[in-house]
Write a protein that binds this DNA or RNA. Structure first.
Lengths: 221, 221
DNA sequence: ACACATACATTGATCGATTTTCTTACCGAC
DNA sequence: GTCGGTAAGAAAATCGATCAATGTATGTGT
């Protein structure tokens, strides 16, 4: 028998797909989301579709105004600075708490997460762009591992959506920050292992602000 | 003709009603939410109901696990401490930014908001419990006014849900902190008007932690 | 008497159809 | 020529019905 727990039902699968399609730009920013067309392309009914869209609307990935349907959330320079500042606040605080409370198991998990991320980064730097979506997953897992010992479920949950909103802007510019980002990840790992709160917060701020500057520089349009 | 913009459709109205019913405890914590019954009592169809519940699930007011339906989010001592810490972080940061950037219009709006709140608090202290739900509204409007000049839409949006999650715990214990809370609100106003960031953050922390201690002391069960 | 399996009842998840609302194109009046 | 109103078409919001999963009770075998 197949394990049903792999997918959480059509609605949950659809939610994941839509979310990824928004974060990775396959659904363009500010694009209209016509129920009739999406219903066809995703192969679900309108009710199921609306359930997923409502969840995404609550998280801020899609907008819905009055009875005019759903739109992908737009991307603006101000929106990027806004979400980046929020990520620095949330992740910075969670990182501090995590450094305070983390035990040896936590240390082991961040070392492991960093190793996997490092491998992917090497391939990315060498120009292998096929692993991009995979790399994102490991980037997130590393950052999530860093703050996993913060002791707050609310914080971890919130970080997940803030991180993805920020990531959407990183994906938008197709170029990779490469060596710089990789070095910052290493610095974050070192700060965590040496329990240096101030240094960790500082590196994290530079890491995120660096991504903002990179995105703004390659904004285009 | 009646202005349609007053209600945002059945779904949005239902969302508001459900959210209020959860925050004010009319839907008990951890209670099951049977679609068949709710459909009757709220007078909507199952699809509309599920849309609203999905939005609330994304915000964390209701839980949904697998194919077993929806539950009101439970309330625990740890959950209270968790959400309180998050509120201190979010609102404290937003308050600082607001003090930095706020202009005279902002000052006027917080004076006005505080005045309305103050009137309600006087009636609450005198034992008039009929204005409780109205008082909550003005409490929220005052705190929202304090941070309105922070310059971040994401922060304001996030604050709204964090505030309501915290408020649910305050509503849970039926007693009112009365004079203490009123004095703290006055102190917050003074700190904002005198642009004293450190004092503002300090008062805010005491205000929120005070509410936590009050709730834990009257926890019962 | 207890454990397990199976049939039944209940509830949630998904779908297709109906109703309402918005958009736009068209026509007449100023 | 433009503004305002109106009617037709498209799209979204809502609903009622069907399908699938879960929980429960019953019966049988050890």
């Amino acid at each position: 028998m197949t394990d049903k727990r792999i997918d959480g039902g059509v609605a949950h699968t659809l939610y994941d797909r839509l979310r990824r399609d928004i974060v990775f730009g396959r659904l363009a920013a500010a694009a209209k989301l016509p129920l009739g067309e999406l219903k066809e392309s995703y192969g679900v009914s309108v009710s199921t579709l609306r359930e997923a869209l409502n969840r995404l609307a609550a998280e801020g990935f899609v907008m819905t105004e009055g009875q005019r349907g759903f739109f992908v959330a737009p991307m603006t320079r101000e929106g990027l600075r806004d979400i980046a500042a929020l990520r620095i606040l949330i992740e910075g605080y969670a990182f501090e708490k995590s450094i305070e409370h983390g035990d040896t198991d936590w240390e082991a998990s961040i070392v492991a997460a960093h190793h996997k991320l490092h491998r992917l980064e090497q391939r990315m730097i060498q120009g292998d762009v096929s692993v991009r979506e995979n790399w994102k997953q490991h980037d997130w897992e590393f950052h999530q591992a860093l703050i996993a010992a913060c002791g707050s479920a609310e914080l971890l949950r919130l970080h997940q959506t803030v991180f993805d909103k920020y990531l959407r802007y990183q994906v938008r510019v197709l170029t990779f920050r490469g060596t710089l980002a990789a070095q910052e990840h290493k610095d974050l790992l070192d700060a965590a292992l040496s329990r240096n709160v101030a240094q960790g917060a500082d590196v994290l701020r530079r890491h995120i602000d660096g991504g903002v500057e990179h995105s703004l520089a390659h904004w285009g349009g």
